[in-house]
Structures are given as structure tokens and as C-alpha cells.
Design a protein around this nucleic acid. Structure first.
Lengths: 258, 258
DNA sequence: CGCACACTTGAGTAATGTCAAAGAGTGTGG
DNA sequence: CCACACTCTTTGACATTACTCAAGTGTGCG
């Protein structure tokens, strides 16, 4: 089942209908713009940006970047959730990040992609060719600066994730994950105590370096100790965000232990 | 003992004597230049580069960047080995990378350092202030491009490390580490089957998400199965680099099992 | 309504961590 | 130059966490 959509021999993602993707309107109207690189481009230059982008949508479960393929594009996620992952020879999977609206994709890339990317939900993105980006950056050095900032932030996040993977316990990992998603909601100005888990337990496990079962058990334990509440599938309410945050940083875990 | 040199209240690292660090000579003569960012600066502009750098040396074991401190500098390692690490509240340590001559340090940084850096061996580096770098980049966009490339490479390496930490077994982790160091020797044009381990077992463990004991046991096992040889302390000869490389990628490990 | 899939729960195992002690290597001072 | 002290590494015995395998439960979709 994990391989259902694997492999690269897929029909291409379809461009949005109507050719609406060429023109300044889409960029100006883009809800993700404020969150993304594109924010570094002034209103007056949006047409230039729009000219090099193609907006596309990808259905749930579709792999749209396969590790090893020539890296021809950069992507800007405008809607949905994407998982970035790498595989070992025997199929073990490590998800190196989840991407959401506003996130930029393609930095960790030389000539070929070193990772795969799969749409966790239905996804919409703007795509640029590397060539076009190159020319564009010449003209808008501000965007290049922004890319460097983004890369720095991603690098910091990657280091944080290394701490999690290398040194945290299962409980701390899951608490970190919930806290991370909560912070993201906060940044978006939404209620930060209710989280939608769009991804499967398997994906959460592959992100945290755990098995599905351990993720499930840990969530159950959190629920039974009153740290979280799960009103319905895919929804988690953080009953005690503070305790979760402390737990995620490696605070004494005996205080909330079963 | 781990705290012997910890804390920020240390005498500053000393600049090299003679003021030799201001002038073009040091950059032109720098052995690490070909490996580093500085390579993006042409010979004719080296004086400009030298004008904003200060070369310093740091003794073994000295922490020269402490997480949380204001990020005022970027560094270019020109000699020695540096470890970059993060700590959890209770002292658990995760080393996110080892840096060698030519490596650039300071990218994963906003206004304060999110990591600490310690000299594993005696270290020499060139230091730039953020301000100076900003002005310099305006003038030499080529260097900025180079930084973006470096950041991309680091990001790819970070993802690779996440796979290691999240999904590899102890044997695979240690094999990966040896293979990584071997590749580095290769890139430097040196014999790639003999590796100097400048760092302690503890550091290797903190890098691989293992304990000292597990690292030690795994190395012993590799030796007893003929994968490696340890002629003297700190030296490892890869007797079967191919098998190690395969093991590190998650190949069937039964073929070399004890 | 029933099938499929994802999630949960349980029992037993294996890998790695913990604690403890002995051995090896390094440097220092007598 | 040797002996001692210190630290790092190795080895051993045991504990524990998280994994594996397996069965059951729930949920959503056709």
C-alpha cells in the first residue's frame, strides 16, 4: 500500500485550467504570498514573477518529486500538506519535513533531487524552472537574500530535528511534534490548541523515527493522562500545552508519567 | 569534566600575532581557500576580503560559540576540527555536524546562535562580522550565490543525517560515519582507507545518537569481523570499504553479522 | 450494510541504554 | 626516565525502551 503511488511513471500533475496562471492576478491574489518567498517581490513586479510560474494541483497521495530525478523545478506550496522523505534500500522511510502553504521546496538540491515529495492532502503549488529562477534572481537580488534566509531557517529546523531524532524519547518526540504544529497554528493566527493531523500515524512515525504503534500508544497515553484530547479522528486538542512544551524540551517526564 | 570549558565567561580567542591578518597575503596563501566560500572571490579582490576578516586560533576543547548568544560573526574554519551541537535541558547532547578546514559556519542563524561550537582539536578560523559580510555581499553577489549553494548542500547533508538518526541501526550508523569520513579524505585527494578519528567516542556517539559504549562495541565488532583495523588509537583503516558502504546504505547486514 | 484501511491494543522480543569495573593510553611531576 | 594519576576506551551484566508480530476495534467509503 505504501507503494501504491510510488515510482515516477505517473501522468504529470495537471496545470490549472484557463491559463489563469499566466498573469499578475494569481500572484497578487495568492493567499500564500505573505508567507512565502514571493513576498520579497514588490506589487509592481508581480507580473514578472507570474510570468515564470506555473500553478498546478496534485491529488492526495501523488508523488510529484522522486529522489534521483533531474532537479528541474523549484516549488512554492500554496495549498495543502506535502511530505519530503528519503528511503533506505530496504524501504525504511524517513520523512525530513512536512511542508504547508507558503513553504518553499527545492533548496536541498544539486542537479538531481536528493529527496522525494508526496502530496499528503490535495496540494496546489507554483512551480518555477531552475533556469527561469536563475535569471529572475539576477534581477531581484532581494529574493536571493530571502532564499538564503529561508535556507538558514530550514537549517536551524533541521538541527532541531536532529536533536529530536538522536536524543529524545518517544514521549518527547510526540510532544515535540504536537508543540511544533501548535506553534505553526499560532503563527497563522489561528487557535493554537486545536491541531488537525492530516497525516497518518505511519507518516508521523516516519517523521519522528518511531513505529506507528509507538506513536499510537504514546498518543493514547497522553490522552489518558489528560495532556491531550482527541474529539474526533485527525483532531487533537492540547489540554495542557505548557506541559507538552516542557516535555518536548526534555523536562523531567516523571511529573506526567503514567 | 564535560563542563570543564563550558559557559561563556572565557577569555576571548586570541588573534594571530603580528597583525598579519590584515592584508591580502593571508587569504592568497590560505590553504583552505580552495575549499571554502573565499574561492568565489577572485585574486584581484582578495585584499577586500582580507580587510573584513580576522584570523584567530582557538585551543582544543574551547567553546567559541554558545547557543543563545547574539550571532555577531560568521566563521570560516581554516584548520582543525569543530563540533556543532545542541543541548537538551538535562544535558543530553546532539552533535549536528563536524566541521573541517574550508567549512563555513554561521548559516543556521537568525539573531542569536541556535547552536554551540567547540574546538575538538586546536582550531584556526577566519571571522567576519555580520555587518561586514552584508556590505561585502552587496558588492560580490557571486559570494552570495556560493553561500546559497553551501546552504543547499548543508540542507541535503542534514536530511541524510536525519535518515541516519531516525532509521538506521547502530551498525549502519557507525558504518555511515566511517564511510563519510572516508569520502572526505577522498575529496581531499588523500588515501581514503585510513581515517583519523580526532573526536572522542563520546562525540561520535553524540553525533550518531548512540552511547559511547555502543559505539565502542560496534567498532570492536567491525574489527573482529575484519571490516576495519585499528592500528593505533585514533586511527582506523577500512579493510573492506565496500562492505561498510553497503552496510551504511541499509544493505542486508546478515552477510557481515557476527 | 459491509468491506477495506487505519488505528489501537496486547504479548513477547530484540536492540540499545545503564551501571559498573577493568584495561589502555597520555601526560606530569618526582 | 619512571611511576602515578587521570581520562578515555573497552568489556560485562543487567535493565529498559521501543520494535515486531498479531489480533481486535473503529471509521469511512462504496
Amino acid at each position: 500500500m505504501k507503494d501504491k503511488y510510488a515510482g515516477a511513471a505517473l501522468p504529470p500533475a495537471r496545470p490549472l485550467p484557463g491559463g489563469a496562471q499566466h498573469g499578475s492576478a494569481p500572484c497578487a491574489a495568492c493567499a500564500a504570498r505573505v508567507l512565502s518567498v514571493c513576498n520579497a517581490v514588490g506589487d509592481e513586479d508581480l507580473p514578472r514573477l507570474a510570468a515564470i510560474t506555473v500553478s498546478q494541483e496534485v491529488e492526495e497521495r501523488r508523488t510529484f518529486i522522486t529522489a534521483g530525478d533531474p532537479a528541474e523545478h523549484f516549488f512554492n506550496i500554496t495549498e495543502g500538506v506535502v511530505k519530503i522523505y528519503r528511503l533506505l534500500a530496504d524501504g525504511r522511510q524517513q520523512i525530513t519535513g512536512f511542508l504547508f502553504a507558503g513553504d518553499f521546496l527545492g533548496l536541498a538540491t544539486e542537479n538531481t533531487y536528493a529527496f522525494s515529495a508526496e502530496a499528503v492532502t490535495a496540494v496546489r503549488y507554483c512551480r518555477f524552472t531552475r533556469k527561469a529562477i536563475g535569471r529572475f534572481l539576477e534581477e531581484f537580488p532581494k529574493v536571493e537574500k530571502r532564499l538564503l534566509t529561508i535556507a538558514s531557517n530550514e537549517l536551524a529546523a533541521a538541527q532541531e530535528q536532529m536533536v529530536l531524532l538522536g536524543r529524545k524519547t518517544a514521549r518527547e518526540k510526540v510532544a515535540s511534534f504536537l508543540t511544533l504544529l501548535s506553534r505553526r497554528m499560532q503563527r497563522l493566527g489561528k487557535a493554537d490548541d486545536v491541531i488537525e493531523l492530516k497525516m497518518s500515524r505511519q507518516d508521523i512515525g516516519d517523521y519522528l523515527g518511531l513505529t506507528t504503534e509507538t506513536v499510537s500508544r504514546t498518543l493514547t497515553q497522553f490522552r489518558s493522562t489528560g495532556l491531550i484530547d482527541m474529539p474526533k479522528t485527525g483532531l487533537v486538542r492540547l489540554s495542557d500545552p505548557r506541559a507538552l512544551a516542557e516535555l518536548s524540551e526534555g523536562a523531567r517526564s516523571d511529573i506526567t508519567a503514567l
